[in-house]
Design a protein around this nucleic acid. Structure first.
Lengths: 140, 140
DNA sequence: ATCATTGCAAACACTTTGCATACGC
DNA sequence: GCGTATGCAAAGTGTTTGCAATGAT
């Protein structure tokens, strides 16, 4: 998703019947500019200096609204916490167990899975892989 | 994995340097006989009548040992809880949002993902899909 | 004035940790 | 007897809920 100015962000939300509050716009803007699969805490830490009154509850609320409206996708790659990803094309996630970074990779879900699930209605697909990334592999 | 008698279960653990305690054998046996991707609570509820002293801590400990030894796989299909699956062949998981059941489906990870991740070391692959299963789709 | 959003505090649920007891070789 | 496994209780952590205050139209 391409960066947007304030007016664009505002209409983006309005079009989806989400009232474009200051906090929601800031969170959306953060997600568009930071494709790092952030956690709620990542978002909080990044925005708190700009919005000192910001509460994590608001971030949770906002992300839940965004998820319901398919603006973001919840990523279950870690047992204990959710990460969020602005919805673009379908892709998988690779988490490096050394540097902890999460990478995107292309994937064609139809090929592999959908033929085994004939007759099922597929709503959300998620593919997560853990391993060691190229960089960390070369360091060792 | 095929059902085993007590001696088999015991050697299965010993071979992996895991001391075959009563609780561990019972939990392993449960996993082999119940391919329902149980949570810790599922296992606890099923075994508590047979082992009244059983503690959830022991189940957590045991499953963590099993996971480290690749006997079970942790399934991250739900945000808030882990499910466990006896390790067999590589397959994906489909969770029906109506009946909550988790189904297995065949998948060839190599095809779709591995070509995009050339140079990366892949350790754990997980593919989770949510949707509506055949049966629930026909009821509606 | 009304209605939705915000944000604090408390509640919740799953998991881990600390530690004393019990068990097995 | 020694070392490990067990299991209770408490702590930890991510997320949700209740509710009063605030904000927008």
């Amino acid at each position: 998703m391409k960066p947007m100015n304030l007016t664009d962000l505002s209409s983006f939300l309005s079009e989806r019947s989400i009232k474009p509050s200051f906090q929601r716009i800031k969170i959306l803007n953060y997600l568009i500019h930071n494709h790092i699969h952030p956690t709620v805490n990542d978002i909080y830490d990044s925005l708190i200096s700009e919005i000192p009154s910001l509460s994590k509850t608001t971030i949770y609320n906002t992300l839940n609204i965004f998820a319901k409206n398919k603006i973001v996708k919840e990523i279950n790659i870690e047992e204990n916490e959710l990460r969020y990803d602005i919805n673009t094309h379908e892709h998988g996630h690779f988490k490096c167990i050394e540097c902890q970074e999460v990478f995107d990779f292309d994937i064609a879900f139809e090929d592999s899975a959908k033929k085994s699930l004939d007759g099922f209605e597929l709503l959300e697909c998620e593919m997560n892989i853990k391993g060691v990334c190229k960089t960390c592999k070369n360091i060792k």
